[in-house]
Structures are given as structure tokens and as C-alpha cells.
Design a protein around this nucleic acid. Structure first.
Length: 296
DNA sequence: GGCCAGGCTAGCA
DNA sequence: TGCTAGCATGGC
């Protein structure tokens, strides 16, 4: 199946997918302009390939694999959501255009959009793995985790790994993740979380209809999930526009640099600044993170 | 070699 | 209620 997804200008495919080609390359495989990744379809593995359509202000999408009756529309919606094709950044840019400090940081990244994970489960697990680790080491762990627990599928004559399902992870033993250099507690967090999803104690699909606050209250009691993790899930899983992970060390380091401070700002300080960024705090956070990536 | 990473929990005051 | 050691490893 092939289809096109119209984009809302401004949209830069290059800026938007840059992080997928660098330290998030565990999800997507790049081939020139094209990016491919596997997804779970209702009838088995799918391969989704996305590329910009020159001069058309649209994405060209190809889906390989068996689709069920009526599944095509669902996949189109999912890919559109993943690549934020229907998000209009114009009001965000207008609000921030006069900002004394952030205006240039934002202007340099005109057209940068979120790329969301295809499933909330994948988002939560990757975020837990990434807690307080170097991004590059987290990527290594995610890779090993996928190889260990995920299914394989063959497309175009090569083997692709799928992100593990909750069922596959629920069957693992803690020791199997420890052998991949997960620490004991992180192994427990991930496997125990997966078991909650499998036994129905937690419905991730239900999160879509909840407010940010309600999502926070739903996920926070789960062991291994703190405020930062929920905020990342709201951002990168649900695509909510007004989140501020004020405790994030990367964000605080970036603010120190961008604002030219002599100290690393505390959580409260970050929240106070963030008030003037509402209702687009997620975008400011994301743009600042992007500027952090470029400094390293 | 030491300290810190895009945190979180358990244990202690 | 608030603070801190410990976690498992890589990078600087």
C-alpha cells in the first residue's frame, strides 16, 4: 500500500527526522532520504517507509506486509500522528517571535516537528530504559532489548526486528535483562510494567482520552515511573503540546547555556520561565533539546 | 580516575 | 515530609 500525507507548512522533514538518523537510530533505518521501521499490524509485521515528496509539501508513505480489512485507514492515521503531519506550528512561532532569548533558537529550527512513537507501550519502555543514562548507552540497551525479546520479519530480503510486545516482555526473567547490562531495578520496572499491561491492570489505550493531569495520576503509582517519565510519555507518546519536564537535566543545562546563567537553574526556576511559553511548553522543550544535541 | 549522564526507589531522619 | 545513597555503564 502506498499513500501520501499532506503536510502543514512550515514542516522540515530534514530537521524533524535528524534525531532518528543519529542517536535514535534503533527505531528507524535510513536509506538516503527514506526512513523505514517495523510496526505491529493486526495480521503481522509491517514495514513502514517514509520519504519527503519533492515540491509537493507531502510525505510519501509505503506500507509492506499483510493488512486486515479496513486497517489501511487506521495505519494512515497512525503514520500521520507519528510524523505530526497535521500539527500547525504557526501560532507557536507567532507567540515566540519576539522572545528575547528563545526567538533565535526557535527560528533556526523552523519546521521541526515531533516524531511520536507508534505505540504508547514502546514509548514507556524506551523512556524507562533511558532514565538517567547517556543517550548512546540507552540506544545500545534498546537495541539489545529488541534483539532479545522482539520478533523478526523479513522485508526486501533482509531481516528486521520488531519492538517487543508486552506479552513477549512479560515472559522474560529479570536475569535475562540483567545479562544485557540492565541494572536489576530497571529490569524489574520494565518486566513488571509489561505484566500490568498484559493482565489488564493498566490500559494504555485509555490514556488517549485522559487529560495530562489524569495521565500523570494513572502512571505515577507504577513502580519505575516518575514525573519525568510521564512527561516524556505525554510528549513523545501522546504528542501533548504543553508539557514541561522541568527536572530534566538536559533541559536545565541547555537553559543555563542559552540564558547565559552562572548556575544550573532549579526545577522551580524552570517552571517559572516556562509559564510564558504556555500553551506550547512541549515545543520549547523539544527545540531546546534539539539545540542540546547540536552542541554535543 | 572521578564525576556526571535527558531518574527513580528505598531507607532513613 | 525531605534528603540521599545506590544503581550499571560510558564519556569526558
Amino acid at each position: 500500500m502506498q499513500f501520501q500525507l499532506p503536510l502543514i507548512y512550515p514542516y522540515s522533514f530534514e530537521l524533524t527526522t535528524k534525531r532518528l538518523r543519529t542517536f535514535e537510530k534503533t527505531s528507524f533505518v535510513a536509506d538516503g532520504d527514506k526512513l523505514s521501521r517495523t510496526m505491529h499490524g493486526s495480521r503481522g509485521p509491517l514495514l513502514c517507509t517514509v520519504e519527503p515528496l519533492a515540491g509537493e509539501n507531502a510525505l510519501r508513505v509505503e506500507i509492506e506486509g499483510a493488512l486486515a480489512e479496513g486497517e489501511a485507514e487506521e495505519i494512515k492515521r497512525k503514520v500521520a500522528r507519528m510524523f505530526s503531519t497535521q500539527v500547525d506550528l504557526t501560532p507557536f512561532y507567532e507567540q515566540m517571535r519576539e522572545h528575547p532569548v528563545l526567538a533565535p533558537v526557535i527560528a533556526e529550527r523552523e519546521g521541526l516537528h515531533f516524531v511520536l512513537e507508534p505505540s504508547l507501550y514502546e514509548c514507556v519502555v524506551k523512556t524507562i530504559i533511558g532514565q538517567q543514562l547517556h543517550v548512546s548507552f540507552a540506544a545500545t540497551l534498546i537495541q539489545r532489548f529488541q534483539e532479545l525479546a522482539g520478533s523478526k520479519a523479513v522485508f526486501r530480503g533482509r531481516e528486521w526486528v520488531l519492538f517487543p510486545t508486552p506479552e513477549q516482555v512479560a515472559r522474560l526473567k529479570y536475569e535475562e535483562l540483567q545479562a544485557l547490562q540492565f541494572n536489576r531495578r530497571k529490569a524489574e520496572y520494565i518486566i513488571d510494567f509489561s505484566r500490568k499491561v498484559v493482565n489488564g491492570e493498566l490500559s494504555l489505550e485509555a490514556l488517549w482520552s485522559l487529560s495530562d493531569e489524569e495521565v500523570l495520576h494513572t502512571l505515577l503509582p507504577i513502580r519505575g515511573i516518575g514525573r519525568w517519565t510521564v512527561e516524556c510519555v505525554l510528549l513523545f507518546g501522546l504528542g501533548r503540546p504543553d508539557l514541561l519536564p522541568a527536572a530534566d537535566i538536559g533541559l536545565r543545562n541547555t537553559l543555563k547555556r542559552v540564558y547565559g546563567l552562572d548556575h544550573q537553574p532549579g526545577e522551580e526556576e524552570v517552571r517559572q520561565w516556562g509559564e510564558s511559553w504556555a500553551p506550547y511548553r512541549s515545543y520549547v522543550t523539544f527545540y531546546l533539546w534539539d539545540s542540546l544535541d547540536n552542541v554535543k
